Simulated scan of single mutants.
Amino acid sequence: MENVFLKYMRERVGKTDNPIAAQSEGPVITISREYGCPGKRIAKYLSEVLTEKLKRQDSNKEWRWLSKEIIDESARELKLSPQLIKDLSEYKNRTFFDNLALFFSDTYYPGDVKINNTIANFIYTAASEGNVVIVGRAAEAITKNFKKSFHVKLMAPLEWRAEIISNTYGKTISEAKKEAMEMDRRRAQFRHYFEKDVPDVEFYDACFNCREMTDDEIVELIVIIAETRGFI
């Protein structure tokens, strides 16, 4: 299946070949997650384990993980605040007065297409550098063509996720459920820009149930696959 981001870029510049494609090596591991699943925690732990394995091989290379940096760098590129970029890219509902304030603001306000493609460009560039774990932001679609790539989705039943959200943010279970469903909807809306109507199975190589599996188990399985595929 062709990467939607690459297809867009080729059509935009009117070329059949993308100069970045030749560099699409990786390795890159992407982690998508339902709201309430520990994507950042798993990414941090995974990058530490992979780095430690490289050190044992007398390698000075390191694995890094990216999440907040994606928004920060995109905000810098667009000359907007990270919070605004985060809200816009997550399709956060804005009131009429919020939109009116943005319209009359002295600050340049780019459309969704420019925001999404700025985020995608940062992810693609970071993945091209290799040895990176990327959390969220449709990274699985943006880097699907990479020769060395592995794409994971973290899932769990809504009730379990609501308990995690409730305990973390001091919300009622009912409020936590609503927040989880809303965040899942907004994240899906962002991914749809790149994935269109292509089913998830085309993008993810493995899905893990966070209610049934510990962080150690999830990371260990990902590391085994990374070793098998020659990432380390």
Results as ranks from 00 to 15, higher is better:
8 Y>P: 02
87 D>V: 05
14 G>M: 14
213 M>S: 03
17 D>C: 01
188 A>F: 00
220 E>T: 00
44 K>P: 01
35 Y>N: 04
94 R>Q: 12
150 F>I: 02
152 V>H: 05
204 Y>H: 14
197 D>L: 10
35 Y>F: 10
195 E>L: 13
50 L>A: 11
106 D>G: 10
133 V>W: 10
215 D>V: 08
174 S>A: 05
106 D>L: 12
63 W>I: 09
157 P>Y: 04
30 T>M: 12
36 G>W: 08
116 N>L: 14
17 D>G: 00
203 F>G: 06
57 Q>R: 04
127 A>T: 09
107 T>Y: 07
108 Y>R: 14
75 A>L: 06
66 L>R: 15
107 T>H: 14
94 R>Y: 05
207 C>M: 10
149 S>I: 01
40 K>T: 12
43 A>T: 05
91 Y>S: 00
81 S>F: 00
227 E>R: 07
35 Y>W: 08
16 T>Y: 12
86 K>R: 13
67 S>P: 01
155 M>R: 02
211 R>S: 02
176 A>P: 03
118 T>P: 02
117 N>P: 04
156 A>Q: 03
81 S>T: 15
198 V>I: 15
71 I>T: 15
1 M>W: 03
200 D>T: 08
202 E>V: 14
53 K>G: 03
226 A>I: 04
43 A>I: 08
8 Y>T: 12
84 L>A: 11
46 L>V: 13
49 V>H: 02
181 M>F: 02
204 Y>E: 08
232 I>D: 10
40 K>G: 07
99 N>M: 15
216 D>A: 10
41 R>Y: 01
136 G>S: 10
114 K>A: 09
82 P>F: 03
183 M>E: 14
224 I>M: 08
171 K>N: 09
99 N>V: 09
165 I>C: 07
27 P>W: 06
57 Q>F: 00
184 D>W: 13
